[in-house]
Amino acid sequence: MPIRKTPLFCLILLALWFAALQLGAQPSPSPLSLAVISDAPYTPQEEANFPALIEDINHDPGITLVVHIGDFKNGGTTPCSDEVFLQVRQWFDLFQRPLIYTPGDNEWTDCHRWGLGGYDPSERLSRLREIFFPSEESLGQKTIPLARQSRTPTYGKFRENARWVADGTVFSTLHIVGSNNNLGRTPADDAEHRERIDATLHWMREAFALARSEKLDGVVLIMHADPYFEKRHGEKSGFRSFLLELEREVVAFKKPVLLIHGDTHTFRVDHPLRQQNHGRRVENFTRLESFGSPRMNWVKVTIDRRGPDFFKIEPRYFTASLPDELPTP
Rank of each mutant, 00 (worst) to 15 (best):
S135W: 05
K142I: 05
R113A: 11
D93F: 10
R129E: 12
R97H: 10
Q149S: 10
C111W: 01
T154P: 00
D93V: 13
E130F: 09
I100Q: 07
F132Y: 09
S126K: 13
F132L: 08
V88N: 12
Q141I: 04
G117S: 02
E123R: 00
E136M: 06
F95I: 11
E83G: 00
D120L: 07
L125M: 12
F85H: 11
L86V: 03
Y101T: 12
H112E: 04
E136T: 11
D82S: 15
H112M: 03
T102G: 05
W108A: 03
Y101R: 08
Q96G: 14
I144W: 05
V88F: 14
L146Y: 06
F95V: 07
P121D: 08
P121I: 03
S122I: 15
R113L: 14
E130L: 07
F95P: 02
F95W: 07
P145Y: 00
R97C: 06
Q90N: 15
D120A: 12
T143P: 10
R129Q: 10
P79H: 12
H112L: 01
P145T: 01
C111F: 04
T152Q: 13
P103Q: 01
R127S: 03
I100V: 15
R148N: 08
R151S: 13
P98S: 01
T154K: 10
R97S: 09
